[in-house]
Design a protein around this nucleic acid. Structure first.
Lengths: 206, 206
DNA sequence: GCCCGGCTACGTACAAACCCTTAACCCCCT
DNA sequence: AGGGGGTTAAGGGTTTGTACGTAGCCGGGC
């Protein structure tokens, strides 16, 4: 259900352009969905969608550049390719700084576009897998009770049960229990794995 | 000796431009060194230099874009700002994809340039600190003998001394000795810290 | 030829962590 | 009133890691 096959989301206000892009991209076997405006796309799009975005800069309402910023704000991280008829350098730089994968001027060669789409889809798959992995780990961490969490932090910081007990004013036995619960809940079967998970989880405090 | 104060490296074939940039940038307190060509800069530059690069795209010999690629190849990772008189979109996109921090068209406002230089210098300092930290850790790892290294890998993978001994056909005692040596050499005083260092060291194998 | 460092191994003693069981107290929800 | 989860604690036993000492083998350098 959350593992959808990747889609190329084409956003352009010109119906003829949309159709020809759809035709082109489908011809190499990708799924395509088209939208006439950035808002229309934003309404339909969720973080669950996999694929990449192909957007024109110049559109009535919201431009492709604004769209990019909105997507970042909504944590939708699909690679975005910006295409443009009348682009200038400042626009290109702005798009690239905002994280666009590419900024392509019309007229462009079909192959160049298809190549970039390929790159975009591959990157999305990779990034998505990475995010999924992190989310799975994060879910496990969220099962921890507050006490277990503080104990885990200290364990990951390299402290012994004894030290932790002293710091928290507990008996060593209690710390042992919390520690065992942590290991069970996050499904770590060694201290090394626990540290591993904790570090991958953004808690990269030294 | 390897902690030099940051310098802005200005590369432009036009002496008048060089001088005015030098004057401008020194006026806000940065050190500046100027070069008339990309080759001249490449000869003078090492990974030890701290600061950022300000290069024109259009220069006889090597362009600013080629220079960027050469620098990446030589692992010189100073942030690069490209400036240009006659830039086009394709050039800007290429520069940004190659990792340029910004791509600025002439004529530009002095303040915009100085702001970007500020950003570039800050980023360089941060990145440099990060690299230094990693290099220090790497240096310690390089002190390990081959045997110690393989033992460490298994320890970090969460295996017990017993398991490791079995896998390597050694006595547990021997593994304990190697393990102790590892901890001493890398100056880790807990397993957690060891895992920490090992992971930061690119050995992010699960 | 000798010494040093890396690799191997053993013993003893102690510290720390792990496993299992039991059990109290509190709070919330049914 | 009872059940569940979180927090606290203990006893008792096994496993694992650490500290310190001893020692043989081998290869490279002075």
């Amino acid at each position: 259900m959350n593992r959808q096959n990747p889609t190329v989301f084409v956003i352009d206000d010109d119906a003829a352009v949309r159709d020809s892009l759809k035709y082109l991209i489908e011809s190499v076997g990708h799924r395509v969905r088209t939208f006439a405006s950035a808002n229309e796309f934003l309404d339909a799009c969720t973080t669950e969608h996999a694929g990449c975005i192909l957007a024109d800069v110049r559109m009535p309402g919201m431009s492709g550049l604004e769209l990019q910023e909105r997507l970042v704000a909504r944590a939708i991280l699909m690679p975005t390719i910006i295409i443009t008829g009348h682009g200038d350098v400042a626009m290109a730089v702005r798009a690239m700084k905002a994280g666009a994968l590419d900024f392509i001027e019309k007229p462009f060669s079909d192959q160049v576009l298809l190549d970039q789409i390929h790159v975009a889809l591959e990157r999305d798959t990779r990034e998505r897998e990475k995010r999924d992995r992190q989310r799975r780990i994060q879910d496990r961490f969220s099962l921890l009770s507050p006490r277990e969490r503080t104990v885990m932090d200290k364990v990951v910081a390299g402290k012994s049960n004894k030290t932790i007990a002293a710091e928290l004013g507990l008996s060593q036995k209690t710390v042992e229990v919390h520690r065992a619960h942590v290991m069970a809940k996050v499904k770590a079967d060694s201290l090394a794995q626990l540290v591993h998970m904790a570090l991958q989880n953004g808690l990269t405090a030294q």
